[in-house]
Design a protein around this nucleic acid. Structure first.
Lengths: 362, 362
DNA sequence: TTGTAAGCGTTATCAC
DNA sequence: GTGATAACGCTTACAA
């Protein structure tokens, strides 16, 4: 991509407009940003001249260099963009961010963490993007871009992950929500549980969630959810080591289906499955039905997120206010008036649907 | 959002690093962009100093001002962002764009046309974003931002809409695809058709797609699809005026359901419905079934797009290579080496599923 | 291999 | 209300 000059004609600047009208370039600048400083007539005259010359307003880069801010914010994903666009939960958050940006006339730059991690040879910044601040969305705590974002010395807000000192945080009570889900199933009489966990660490492992891995969970949201589940079960006298768990490689229906196969094929297969996302749960439901079992007569299942597909699948789940997460993040980023550490914990709601029922007799 | 300086410490610049190491300004700059110009040892020394001082690389704004380009591109939606994120077809395109951007290490700025249309008092540019080029995605031809984008004097690429002189274009053969859909239903013996059309103009109208509106369709993709349908029908001896059509207000399932109610409540209700999007078709299917009719025994229905939900609903449709649209757009934007007018028309595929069948007897 | 100096197009300060 | 002048932080001939 070449610069404007590729077209031959030199870029039209403030100066050109000023010359045309016969005023100083300051006055033209004022016409755009301080309307009160000149007569309406002159302002009109300037705009007319600009129009005629093909001047499209102050150059964003120059403006930013002079003012120190760009009017754009960066939304930083941990996953690659293609994945992000396929996940309804991510989209809902992004939706909220977009809404708020729209209102504030702020531009939105999408930045995938993946891309920033490539150039290991050169200490690159996070994207070439000129942004006034970053929203870190569910970024792995050990990711290099966390450090990079902090070094950049612009306002930051974290959504979901990771918890950072002196950085505002938007999230939910993952632990409490998970606790309630497990509790609900316990009250229905279930005693044999299985857990479908999202990735616990930034590696390529998937399979049985071993005790060792349980103890070293890098992703705090996952750790909290697991803790919530296990705490409820433990309170009911069910020891964590007696609760089989499967760690999936990626948040998708297929992975959920695979995890469910593991759980159902064990001795003493669970009558209740706790899944850390709706996509995983929906995949698991397919496996359950394919095995000739009924939901909820034979197996109850609980999801997490309440994506649109959950209602269609009659899946019980934890409703997260995804969109509000995004909106709060923008608000926090925009209103950062000091170093105060404002956190926002949003409410979740337990949505009971047809996927859960009393534990089967016997 | 304040500038960096809010934190008290002055921003670290190239100069500071240069002073620290005891070299010039330029050498430090070279360390970042022209590694060949200095010894590896010196380069390391410079990076070390940068690290120590907290220098995070050249300031994007300053860099852009000096070089003339930003390494970012703008993706311009006609709809507001929140809508865009709810439309699977839009997302798929965005996905393709994101993929390509990722590869090229280009940043992606999302810009909704809506926001640019607000400040009518000041001639604002498209977003504050400093971008090297724009992808215009399905923007209404009469939208102000088309003009604004052109004035900005940066490379442009249009996806789907509108066709612009001297601007590369990425799209499909809407007319041909629609023609094939109608043809397929004709071959199944259908004679009574109904059309569910997307918005034809940029106003608040919805309801019967009148002859007058049919003749004044602002959105070229819609015009082409309608023409494709009607041409096929006309060739089979069915006059356009005998084909009822409903124009929906917004591309959603609800609107489709409403449109289908109109079509089914008429005298001589259609046995075949041509919908211009899958979302609309899926909404219509609900109405059809709610009316006690079977698909495809009583009514056949054809969608457009092949979004994931189409397969789940067993909906026949036209598969568009959404993702490739996005990738091609980035390619065209990036490779613009002159003023040549490269257009890309991607292939579509007719996907026949269970939603179509022979016309009912009688 | 390194340094000097001239921009890049704005905004901001402060006189007039 | 208006206009010089100095930043803003960097890139890039060109010179050494």
């Amino acid at each position: 991509m070449k610069t404007t000059r590729q077209y031959g004609r030199r870029k039209v600047t403030l100066k050109d407009v000023a010359a045309q009208v016969g005023v100083s370039h300051t006055t033209v600048s004022n016409a755009y940003i301080r309307p009160g400083q000149l007569s309406a007539a002159l302002r009109e005259k300037i705009f007319a001249a600009a129009q005629e010359l093909g001047y499209t307003g102050p150059d964003p880069a120059a403006k930013q260099l002079a003012t120190g801010h760009s009017g754009a914010l960066g939304f930083l994903f941990s996953e690659d963009l293609p994945y992000a666009f396929s996940d309804p939960a991510v989209l809902a958050v992004l939706n909220g961010v977009a809404k708020s940006c729209d209102e504030m006339e702020t531009d939105l730059a999408l930045i995938s963490a993946g891309s920033s991690l490539r150039n290991m040879n050169t200490p690159v910044s996070l994207g070439n993007a000129a942004v006034d601040g970053y929203i870190l969305y569910s970024v792995a705590p050990d990711s290099r871009c966390v450090l990079m974002a902090q070094q950049r010395n612009v306002p930051l807000v974290v959504v979901d992950q990771p918890r950072l000192d002196n950085v505002p945080y938007v999230g939910i009570d993952d632990r409490g929500a998970a606790y309630n889900a497990a509790k609900t199933l316990l009250e229905l009489g279930h005693r044999r549980f299985g857990i479908l966990s999202l990735k616990t660490a930034h590696d390529d492992y998937f399979g049985i969630l071993t005790a060792k891995r349980r103890a070293n969970i890098a992703h705090s949201t996952i750790a909290m959810r697991l803790e919530g589940y296990l705490t409820a079960l433990q309170e009911a006298g069910i020891a964590p080591e007696n609760v089989p768990a499967w760690e999936i490689p990626i948040n998708s229906e297929e992975s959920g289906a695979e995890g469910a196969r593991f759980l159902l094929n064990r001795q003493n297969a669970p009558t209740a499955i706790l899944a850390m996302s709706d996509r995983v749960a929906i995949g698991a439901m397919q496996t359950i039905r394919a095995a000739g079992l009924s939901i909820p007569e034979d197996v109850s299942i609980f999801g997490f997120d309440d994506i649109p597909a959950a209602a269609l699948s009659d899946l019980s789940t934890i409703r997260q206010p995804h969109e509000r997460k995004g909106m709060e993040a923008v608000r926090l980023l925009t209103q950062q008036d000091g170093r105060q550490n404002k956190n926002v914990i949003l409410e979740t709601e337990l949505v009971a649907r047809g996927s859960i029922g009393p534990a089967p007799k016997g």
